[in-house]
């Protein structure tokens, strides 16, 4: 619960003032999107070729002066879900594809690791995008790049809604804990009532928050605090990264390096 709340801290990091923070959000959204698409587009047994892509998150974290540990923690937050998705690969796919001495590594383990690496890269890139730009500005950029306004606003509401649900949830569970006198067995009846209440309250509260937004002149359009335009710096930023990504995608650098060292051509 607490960890979701921490996610909000990502938005706080967006208040920074490095050159990367000041870059037009569209440039960052575009580069991040291309990065994610290319990382996902790799074949399932591809592993080594993914590693050079780490340069993007690392460089971004350094340039934006983000706390690396914090970002890593946030990425770890989603790993359980990823493990859940990938864990069946080693079970079903037992064909040995790499023989390291006596140790045979099955295709399943490779694709499992590949899923982990890919999710860490993409989730990390998305988090870094939020931490350098702010979710509001990301939505606004999406809208400027052609996403219908309704969707952009919905996306933003969805994002806020997660936090509201989380706050209400932690409040309800605290109240329940205090009144259950240390006994931690929750009967099915009180559990369903807790969940029911939670959803109702979240909905009501989201409604009131929406109301308060309307009361402050909200007409379905979000304004970012920072005014920016897509200038030459943005162009270079996008071209530079995209070129690098394409190179990394279509030239397998670790393999080249390997064959260079061992003298065996592939």
């Amino acid at each position: 619960m607490e960890s979701i709340r921490d996610l909000k801290q990502l938005d706080l990091l967006a208040g920074g003032s490095t050159a990367l923070h000041r870059l037009d959000p569209r440039a960052k959204v575009l580069v991040t999107a291309i990065f994610i698409v290319l990382v996902i587009s790799f074949g399932r047994y591809e592993l080594a070729a993914l590693l050079p892509f780490m340069i993007f998150p690392i460089v971004m974290v350094v340039l934006a002066n983000l706390p690396p540990l914090f970002i890593i923690q946030k990425i770890l937050l989603v790993t359980p879900f990823v493990i859940l998705i990938g864990i069946f690969n080693p079970l079903f796919d037992r064909e040995i594809v790499i023989q390291l001495g006596a140790l045979g590594i099955s295709g399943g383990w490779i694709s499992f690791t590949s899923i982990l690496v890919r999710s860490a890269l993409t989730v990390g890139a998305a988090f870094i995008l939020i931490a350098t730009t702010g979710f509001t500005a990301v939505c606004q950029a999406l809208e400027q790049m052609g996403m219908p306004q309704v969707f952009a606003v919905q996306l933003l509401f969805l994002y806020r809604y997660i936090f509201v649900l989380n706050e209400e949830g932690s409040r309800a569970s605290k109240a329940r804990e205090l009144r259950s006198c240390g006994r931690n067995n929750l009967s099915l009846g009180s559990y369903t009532s807790l969940v029911g209440h939670l959803l109702l309250r979240t909905w009501q509260r989201a409604e009131r928050i929406h109301m308060s937004m309307l009361a402050r002149g909200f007409v379905g359009r979000f304004h970012a605090r920072r005014q920016s335009r897509f200038g030459r710096t943005e162009l270079w930023f996008v071209l530079g990264w995209v070129t690098l990504f394409l190179l990394l995608r279509f030239i397998n650098i670790p393999q080249r390096l390997g064959s260079l060292l061992t003298g065996v051509s592939v």
Binding site: G15, R205, R208, S212, H223, R225
Partner: peptide, 26 residues
């Protein structure tokens, strides 16, 4: 201008500054 009984219903932006700026920006 309406101030609600529960301030939690009124604050929804990442920072205090952003929250106060929300109205004037609109």
């Amino acid at each position: 201008g309406m101030v609600f009984q529960n301030p939690d219903d009124q604050l929804f932006m990442p920072t205090v500054f952003d929250d106060v700026a929300f109205g004037p920006l609109n």
